[in-house]
Amino acid sequence: MKQNKAYMAVIHTIFILLTLSFLLPFIIIVIVSISPESQITTYGFQLIPQKIDFTAYGLVLKNAGVLFKSIIWTLFISATAPALAVMVNALMAYPLARNDYSLRKPVNVLMIVSMMFSGGLIPTYIIYTQVYHLGGANPMLYWLSSLFSVWNVILFRTFFKGIPAELIESATIDGATQPQVLFHVVAPLSKSIVSIQYFTSVIARWNDYQTSLIYYPNNQEYWTVQYYMQTILQSVQQLKASLEMQGLRDTSEAPVTTLKYAMCVISIIPVFIMFPYVQKFFSKGIAVGSVKG
């Protein structure tokens, strides 16, 4: 019994230390974001700040209207684009998981080839902007660019294959059509994979700044919050460099470092809010495809 207690104490200590090691970086991020820039350059990162300073947050919030608009826009994209993507990927994966679908092999090959040898950024850019004339005033790219992912289709296909064929067969015997089988039998059993795919896509969309940077740099209406913050950081860096170059004013308090960390904190907020709701699906979903045989 004693031995068991000691064992548990050791295990608990190890896990407490492990938890702290995960928490500590985040705590430091928050602390740096509320520290004065001069303190960071002088003393480096500290766990207990000598002064509290919200200059970096002030800069992010300086243009609250644009920030608010970009948050709303990003939330909208983050909610809708992953939903569409999950639907498209699932619809693509379902027939590929069925053994009675005759074209599954050639389609699989096509998908795998396109995944292994993707065109890359420049051809993609040419196709979007010069063939489909997307970007600029047309925000469709926020949905279209992430609509289909071979990797996600493979994950879905693997999961669907794990659903007992007898269930599908019995539904078919009962007279269910293929869409009915998908939506009434397969979909309810696939909550975990749908959740994990939706959650990871939401995070990707929330953190996306490249779409705004490449396709919508002129249109503030369509800026994501990450891109908006990126432009602030760039402005501060440019301003600091330019003033130093001219040697005209002291630029000591331009909060380049603290601004980066304030941006980290703001970026992580939606993840914090969402995670508790999807956590239960996380372990199931993430393990899809990992069990063989």
Binding site: E37, S38, T41, T42, G44, Q246, T251
Partner: peptide, 18 residues
Amino acid sequence: NGSESGSRSPVLNAHSTG
């Protein structure tokens, strides 16, 4: 952490001015 650069804080700092 790098040097104390571009800041008024360091006891001695060097830069280039235009």
